[in-house]
């Protein structure tokens, strides 16, 4: 009962903040709205009993990635742009197929799901606690886990080289 209220509240918040991200002319306003979106998403994750994923979302996304975004926006000192919402960039083919795809997704999401999802409708009792997810991460998914550390190392080196001041 109260879960339904919480779900609707956070769902509406998420969608509204996401729309604000896309529509906002000021980049900092968009970044702050995106942080709010991540917060609402973390709340939705907690409603889905995925505690570890929720707190990781706040630590990584809201606490680190968005700080990086805001840092870059401040460094580059961007001014607000006028947002023209009616045109999608690209030629007619891109615009047409984008519109078709979006219409299809909306139709599927709102009207067509009953035919496709017949099982997996009832929640199970598995809690996404840190012990459970950690155990899975370090036994079944150990190799991808170690590969991501290599990936992060490559990303660090790449970012440092890209953003370095050009050598005179």
């Amino acid at each position: 009962m109260i879960e339904a209220y919480l779900f609707y509240f956070f769902a509406v918040t998420t969608v509204l903040l996401a729309v604000t991200v896309v529509v906002q002319p000021n980049p900092i306003g968009a970044a702050v709205s995106l942080v709010g979106t991540f917060f609402s998403l973390a709340a939705l994750f907690v409603l889905l009993h995925a505690h570890f994923v929720a707190i990781m979302q706040i630590i990584l996304y809201a606490g680190a990635i968005m700080v990086l975004f805001i840092f870059v926006i401040m460094l580059l000192n961007l001014e607000p742009e006028k947002v023209k919402l009616r045109t999608i960039a690209g030629n007619r083919l891109v615009q047409g197929s984008a519109a078709l795809y979006l219409a299809g997704v909306i139709a599927l999401a709102f009207f067509g799901w009953r035919q496709f999802f017949t099982q997996g409708v009832v929640a199970n009792e598995m809690e996404g606690t840190i012990e459970a997810v950690g155990k899975l991460l370090l036994t079944d998914y150990l190799v991808p886990f170690e590969m991501t550390s290599v990936l992060l190392l490559v990303a660090i080196i790449g970012a440092v080289i890209l953003a370095r001041k050009p050598v005179e």
Partner: peptide
Amino acid sequence: LNIGILYILG
């Protein structure tokens, strides 16, 4: 919470 200190870090 069962995530304890991670909440404080976050």
